[in-house]
Structure formats: structure tokens, C-alpha cells
Design a protein around this nucleic acid. Structure first.
Length: 435
DNA sequence: ACTCTGGGTCTAGACGAG
DNA sequence: TGACCCAGAGT
DNA sequence: CTCGTCC
């Protein structure tokens, strides 16, 4: 009896602290970093159109896309309640529908996507996860209430809030992508960190995710708003890490500290300190510790668990796939019959649409050089100048060349970003400068 | 008056026919 | 999850 | 462009 109570108490205490530690955070990624950079460091931001990504390889965070598709791709049932699309046997297919069309659109646009899937979250994220679960439970409860009241609007609202991405969703998306000939990578831990590592090592041009912490994980370039529908109205955005650093007047180490103060998934923040104060503080004092020392402790309360060093480690040296062992097949052929079997036979998609979509992919891939031109140019070790030339001249045919001219001119950036793309020929390896 | 923070809110895809 | 708006505290 | 439909 006593033992049981003790265990319960310990468990409860743990839960309570993690719960508290994230009550506020409500913000994945780095809190407010996007708007802050837009305002305070507009130079790091470039507006792009889809054309600009012709031939470029992008590492895309798959989790976020799955989540959004599951929430947004719904059809109205008889009682007026929106429900996910399903196969005849009742399995959700919204995520597949979304991935299918979005991927086709990207390939058609000349983009070479690589989808990165989440692994196990770091243990420091348990607080954030607990809070999400809490929010989900809350949603489930209110969904129940709304259902009893027959309030359709509320039902739709809270049904979305209970949405969760499962292992099965992810496996099905991977299967679909494999059949489409699109490469995937399983991140051992966080997807954004893996995207950043791929970009840092030159295996892709940039990380494509809404999550700003790819930047503080060292992705030289972060691409946001890369969704086709949005792109028609709003430009795609590119954040350049080297210019973030120079605009803010921070080195990479200081930038990471700045991000931690802004608030990330791994701890609470010091209330009263937002991006503005954090920037001034880090500029003046150099690091979090010194900044904290300068604070009036009666006014500013440092969160109780505040494992600065661990958080720094998660952001600067996150767990990622060993690049040396990573082989990515960028030229896999789509498997038409396999795709029909999966989407049409198993999931009830329209065969006509599936074949039509696949046709579009094949055609788009055909347009690419895929052969001679590549072989002709690839052996060259491109100097920055040379690649700039190549970039502007053959942008449509060659793959992911580095950024643009202005970027190359400013080669500052204390850490990464120095190593530009190796020319073609993926296969594992990448020399790897840094670290 | 102005700035910053934080707490609340709402919203969330893509195709293609007409 | 992010973006937007407003209240309130601080300067 | 709007709106119904995708499964």
C-alpha cells in the first residue's frame, strides 16, 4: 500500500513538474523568432518563387505535413461533421492524399524533395510532449461534450485538436514515397535537426520546414512556406543563417544562447525576457550565464529546471544519422504497379488520378538532364565563383547549387555555411569540414 | 507615448469542373 | 504550430 | 475564382 502510494507520488511529482515546465510554452520551435528576424534582421530573408528551386534538393520535415494533412483533408459526413478521408475499410487516407498531390506538385516544379521523418524525441522534450498530450486530452473531453450537445461546429473544432500522427501514418507515407521514387530519411531523433545536418553537409540545398529551430541546429538555409497553394499568394521565404548571424551581430554560439532565451521546446523561459531583451543581453554579456548574473533576480525568475548545457547540446550537436553511412537514391524510378496496388487496390484511390499523377512525375523527371549534361559538368570541383556561374547559367538543369551571389560574397558566418555543395554524385560521404 | 511580453483567439490541403 | 490582436507592465 | 470533391 505504502509502496504503491510512493510510486504514485513520485510519478505524480514528475508529471507535475514537466507539466508546469511547459504550461506556457505553447510554442514549438523558437518562440517568435520568425517575426523577430523579419523585423530586426530583414537582410537574412529572401523572397523566392517556386522557379528559384528548380533542380534543388530540399530536406522536408514530414511530420508537420502529415499532421496538417490529417487535420485539413476532410470531407463532410452526413451529420455535417468533418471526417478524414478513408479507405473502404475505414483506414485514414488523408495523409496519403496530401503527400501524393503535394509531392507531385513539387516534382513538377522541378524540386527534388527528400522527406525526413521524426524518431524518438529527446528526453528534455517530455515537458513539451506532456503539454501537447494534455491539450489533446482536453480536446477529447470537449469533443465528447460537443457530441452530447450535438454542436457540430464544436465537434469539428475539437476533433482536429485530438489528431495525432501515428507510426502507421508515417510508415504509409514512406511506402508511398518509395513507390513514387522519392527518397526518405529516418531521423534518429528530431526531424529538423536531421534536415539541418543534411543541409550543413551539402546533401541538400536547404531545410524546408516551418520550424525555426532548424536554423539554430545549423542549417545554412531554411525554407519556409513551401506549399504550392500558399506559394501562389505568398512568396516562399529563405532564411540564410550567415546573414542572420551578421545581422544580429552574434556568432553561432551566441545565436544558440539567444534562441534558448527566446524559448524552445526544451525548457521554460525567463518571464519578462523576449527576443528583444535576449538579443541585447547576449550581445552585451556574451552568454546566458553572464546575462543571468546581470539580472535583477527579484524581478526576473530563472526557470527552475534550466539545463542550459544540455539544451545547447541538443541544438548544436543533435543526434542525427551518420552522414558517412547515408546513401540517398535521388534517381529511383517510380513503381507504377506497386503504386496502383497500394493506393487503388488497398486504399480506394481513383486509378485514373493515380496514373495521371504518376505520369506527371515521370514527365517532370524526364525534363531533367539526368545524364549527359550532368556527367559532363559534375567532375569539376566547383569553386564558389564557378558554381555561381553554373548556377545562373544552368540553374534549370543542374541540381542544388549554393545560394546566390550576394550570399557567396559574404562568406562570413562563424560556423558552417562555409562548405558549399559538392557537385553531383551523391552516394554517401561528403568530406565534411566542420566538426 | 512607446516597447515588449504574454495570453487569448483562430486556423490548418489540393484538385479541377464550371 | 504559427500568426494575429490586445491588455498590461515596464521604460 | 469559387466551390464541391477527393477516399
Amino acid at each position: 500500500m505504502l509502496g504503491v502510494d510512493d510510486d504514485a507520488l513520485v510519478y505524480y511529482f514528475f508529471f507535475f513538474t514537466t507539466f508546469l515546465s511547459c504550461l506556457k510554452s505553447s510554442d514549438g520551435g523558437i518562440h517568435g523568432l520568425g517575426p523577430f528576424l523579419a523585423k530586426e534582421a530583414p537582410g537574412c530573408l529572401k523572397e523566392r518563387s517556386l522557379q528559384d528551386f528548380q533542380g534543388k534538393k530540399l530536406a522536408i520535415d514530414a511530420s508537420m505535413a502529415m499532421y496538417q494533412f490529417l487535420i485539413a483533408v476532410r470531407s463532410t459526413g452526413e451529420n455535417g461533421v468533418a471526417q478524414p478521408l478513408t479507405s473502404a475499410s475505414g483506414e485514414e487516407t488523408s495523409h496519403l492524399q496530401g503527400f501524393f498531390w503535394r509531392t507531385i506538385a513539387m516534382v513538377k516544379a522541378g524540386i527534388r524533395p527528400l522527406y525526413v521523418f521524426d524518431g524518438k524525441p529527446p528526453s528534455l522534450k517530455s515537458g513539451e510532449i506532456a503539454s501537447r498530450n494534455l491539450r489533446r486530452d482536453e480536446g477529447a473531453k470537449r469533443l465528447q461534450e460537443a457530441t452530447e450537445e450535438g454542436n457540430v461546429e464544436e465537434m469539428n473544432k475539437f476533433a482536429k485538436r485530438t489528431t495525432r500522427v501515428t507510426k502507421q501514418h508515417a510508415e504509409e507515407c514512406k511506402r508511398l514515397l518509395r513507390l513514387l521514387g522519392v527518397p526518405t530519411v529516418d531521423a534518429p531523433s528530431e526531424a529538423e535537426a536531421q534536415c539541418a545536418a543534411l543541409a550543413k553537409n551539402g546533401l541538400v540545398y536547404a531545410s524546408a520546414t516551418e520550424d525555426m529551430d532548424a536554423l539554430c541546429c545549423g542549417s545554412p538555409i531554411l525554407v519556409r512556406r513551401l506549399t504550392m497553394s500558399e506559394a501562389r499568394k505568398l512568396p516562399v521565404l529563405e532564411y540564410h543563417l550567415d546573414q542572420v548571424l551578421s545581422s544580429l551581430g552574434l556568432n553561432m554560439t551566441q545565436f544558440v544562447d539567444f534562441c534558448i532565451l527566446c524559448g524552445c521546446d526544451f525548457s521554460e523561459t525567463i518571464k519578462g525576457i523576449g527576443p528583444k531583451s535576449a538579443l541585447h543581453g547576449i550581445r552585451k554579456h556574451g552568454n546566458i550565464e553572464s546575462f543571468i548574473e546581470s539580472l535583477n533576480t527579484s524581478k526576473f525568475v530563472v526557470p527552475d529546471p534550466f539545463p542550459i548545457d544540455e539544451i545547447r547540446q541538443l541544438l548544436t550537436t543533435p543526434e542525427v544519422v551518420d552522414m558517412g553511412n547515408l546513401s540517398i537514391d535521388w534517381n529511383a524510378e517510380p513503381d507504377e504497379e506497386g503504386l496502383i496496388e497500394f493506393l487503388v487496390k488497398e486504399k480506394g484511390f481513383s486509378e485514373k488520378r493515380v496514373r495521371g499523377g504518376l505520369e506527371a512525375i515521370k514527365k517532370a523527371k524526364m525534363v531533367k538532364p539526368q545524364g549527359k549534361l550532368d556527367m559532363f559538368f559534375s567532375p569539376k570541383k566547383t569553386t564558389p565563383q564557378a558554381s555561381t556561374l553554373l548556377n545562373s547559367t544552368f540553374a534549370a538543369t543542374n541540381e542544388s547549387l549554393p545560394a546566390d551571389r550576394e550570399d557567396l560574397k559574404r562568406g562570413l558566418s562563424s560556423t558552417s555555411a562555409a562548405d558549399q555543395k559538392p557537385a553531383k554524385r551523391s552516394r554517401g560521404r561528403k568530406a565534411s569540414a566542420s566538426k
